[in-house]
Design a protein around this nucleic acid. Structure first.
Lengths: 152, 152
DNA sequence: GACATTTCCGATGGGTTTAGTCAGCTTACA
DNA sequence: TGTAAGCTGACTAAACCCATCGGAAATGTC
């Protein structure tokens, strides 16, 4: 049982936004430089995150992405669900229709449903604010984007 | 985030063994009939379970599989680990070596390591005995294998 | 208005994993 | 010795993952 790269990249990127941008917006290029993520791939990831309402975007020069909520309101679970769908331990089998009738299968179904929501609970227990605190504890330096200065 | 069919089939099969065979042995054919699992596929699953020491096997006529431990000593997590490897949320990336140097990545790594062991904890909290109790509560009937009777 | 920059969208391709099948071998009971 | 089971390894079709690409749309700057 593992996470896809999309999920990891997503969490890294949102954390990056929370930690380095601090409410302002950042661009894909900069996030990828800091987090070592392929830029064209992160583009896709951000599309999903935008559709899920986790970030807002602005096009054009000096555009970029911005958190839609405060870091303590964004949970790891929100990101994972946006990128990989709900945690659902039951595989959507092909000839599972026949099995669904058997009450024997229902026991497994009940158990896995309970486990799924427990696991979601684990993921929802960690927020971006938590990750920022941990980063501070590690001594990680914030690199806020330079304030824009008009050319002379 | 989802489970593979192998994991579900494995849990179903071990539960079936605990519930219907009750310490005795059962054959693939019978388990598959009760649980609606492709027989040749369950064969593979049982090989992994045997190598992990969760079941023992006996070949030849009137052979079959048998639990290696009491149902309250077999946890869902044991089965999942045997069939899908340890829960490890971090994808084993290709160019992740470069990223590992960045302490930014280390934050994500720490968080996911913690989450992984929490999730294992969820899976280890449910035993086969628990599933049997639940099945009893659902009114599921046990179908023990008929005691062998010598032909006249 | 022209241009540069950045996000947005859809398609594509290589590689890996999954789910299931198959043929043939080994073991062991009767 | 025949037959019923498990054991082993190879195989395949489909799905999925991880990007990468070309171009379109929006928007700030000159």
């Amino acid at each position: 049982m593992k996470l896809s790269s999309k999920g990891l990249y997503g969490v890294q990127a949102i954390f990056d936004l929370a930690f380095h941008a601090e409410g302002r917006s950042a661009q894909i290029k900069d996030i990828c430089d800091r987090q070592a993520i392929p830029p064209r791939f992160l583009e896709q990831v951000f599309q999903d995150l935008r559709k899920a309402g986790i970030v807002t975007s602005k096009r054009g020069p000096r555009g970029g992405y911005q958190l839609a909520h405060a870091p303590d309101r964004i949970r790891v679970g929100d990101i994972i669900r946006a990128l990989e769908g709900p945690v659902h331990l039951l595989p959507s089998g092909r000839n599972r229709e026949h099995a669904e009738e058997s009450s024997s299968y229902q026991v497994a179904q009940d158990v896995f449903k309970g486990l799924s929501s427990n696991i979601e609970g684990c993921l929802d227990a960690v927020t971006m604010a938590d990750m920022c605190h941990r980063a501070d504890a590690l001594g990680l330096q914030r690199r806020p984007p330079p304030a824009y200065v008009y050319a002379i």
